[in-house]
Simulated scan of single mutants.
Amino acid sequence: MQTYFNQILSKKINPSKTNNLLVAISGGQDSLSLIKILGQFEKKNNIQNIEYIYIDHQWKQKSKQQTIHLINYLTMNKKIFIYQIEDNCFKEKIARLNRYQILVEHAIKNDYQFIITGHTQTDRIETFLYKLIRGTSLDGATSLTLHRKINNNLSLFRPLLYINRYYINWFCRKFCLPIWSDQTNHNLSIDRNRMRKELIPYIQKYFNIKMEIHLAQFLDICNEENEYIKQNTIKLYIKSRHPFLIALNYKQIQKQHTILQKRIIQLFIFHNYNILLTNKCIKNIISIIDSNAIFTKLNYKNLKIMINNCWIYII
């Protein structure tokens, strides 16, 4: 696993250059494996600027002990930043967004080039199933990727994304890593825990024991196809937007496939106003375009979307 990890890291991180790495950790097996493997990579490539960050939501009675446990494990020669969130938010989605915001803001403020997380293949499958059940798009289904640019200077990197939790568990036992048992992981009132403890084992037992492998392969295919669609969307958007004004020439996209039309319209609104249109609103815009209406106005939230003389624009 160390060899595989070194190969994955070396593709994105050039040891000969200065790379400021911020590693997001917890006390679980994924994080401890990441710390262990990164330590070996650090020694092999003589990298000095790997630092760690831990975000404590203070949900548990033993939150303080878990923090001390992490500090003791990392030893004195590792730099760790600890954030404690005071407002008790028990909603998983909001907590995840808060963590992400803290990570990105901290990384930008301290000039890190990479944020590294310990997401595994199992996390990827769980995220996919969770979003699929709740309703998602191709973008949402493939959101957990190996590498993602946050801005020109910062990237998010998940080097364990193609390693499942069984191998991680074996790795921890082999090196006797002191895993902190998080009691919230056994709380079945949390949707993700119920999926992990009950739904996925049920599917593996009664339908396909290799479900995780097959879904991972499916997600790889989806991700490749989604990237192709994204690239074409961006090309067509650049071609069809007005050179000076905030407007989109719908005649340029009218003959394209409906999927590309939807994505271009969504990109146009999001790029200029940072607002995501609903699928229903986008369908309305496309139906108006197809009907060749001369002048139409649509209201969406605070936007007034105008469709007139082959242009889509906002007033």
Rank of each mutant, 00 (worst) to 15 (best):
L188M: 08
S291C: 08
P15K: 02
T3P: 02
K62Y: 13
N151A: 04
I269A: 12
S16P: 00
V104P: 11
I221W: 05
N14C: 07
E105Y: 01
Q66E: 15
N46A: 15
K131N: 13
M76Y: 14
H57Q: 06
Y167R: 00
N98E: 08
I133F: 14
S291K: 08
D139C: 06
K43I: 13
N249G: 10
E105A: 10
Q256E: 14
N49S: 14
N292C: 04
D182R: 07
R96G: 09
D111Y: 12
F207Y: 01
Y250I: 09
S10L: 14
Q7L: 13
R96V: 08
T296S: 12
S26K: 13
I102C: 07
H242R: 05
I94K: 14
K36V: 02
G140K: 04
L177T: 05
D191A: 13
T120F: 01
Q261P: 07
L34I: 10
K230T: 10
R148D: 07
K174T: 13
K62I: 06
Y54F: 15
F218T: 14
K79I: 07
C172L: 03
K280G: 00
K251E: 12
K230D: 15
L129Q: 00
Y54L: 14
L129T: 02
F175A: 03
D56S: 12
I163Y: 00
Y162G: 00
Q61A: 12
F5W: 03
Y313S: 11
I168Q: 04
L260Y: 15
L177P: 00
T278A: 01
H69P: 04
N153I: 06
A216E: 10
Y83I: 04
Q252D: 15
Y100I: 11
C176S: 14
L138W: 11
I275S: 07
Q204G: 00
I285W: 05
I163W: 01
S181K: 13
E225H: 14
N187L: 11
G39L: 09
F81R: 09
I305V: 00
Y202H: 00
T122W: 01
K283M: 05
I294L: 09
V104T: 15
A24M: 07
K149H: 11
E225F: 14
S189P: 01
L267T: 10
T145F: 07
T127L: 09
K255Y: 07
N45C: 12
T120D: 06
L248I: 05
L177I: 03
F41T: 01
K91L: 09
L219Y: 04
L70Q: 08
I282V: 13
R134P: 00
N152R: 12
K235V: 04
I8N: 03
F114D: 01
N309K: 09
N72T: 10
I259C: 03
L138P: 01
N19K: 07
L161A: 02
I25L: 11
L188P: 02
K78D: 06
F270V: 00
P178I: 07
N14E: 08
S240R: 00
N19S: 13
K280M: 05
K78M: 05
S16Y: 08
K131M: 10
L303D: 05
M76S: 15
Q40D: 12
N249W: 03
N46G: 11
L177H: 11
I68F: 12
Q7S: 15
H147P: 01
N77Q: 14
H69G: 03
F175T: 03
Q261H: 08
Q58W: 02
S155V: 03
N193C: 10
Q101N: 15
I275C: 05
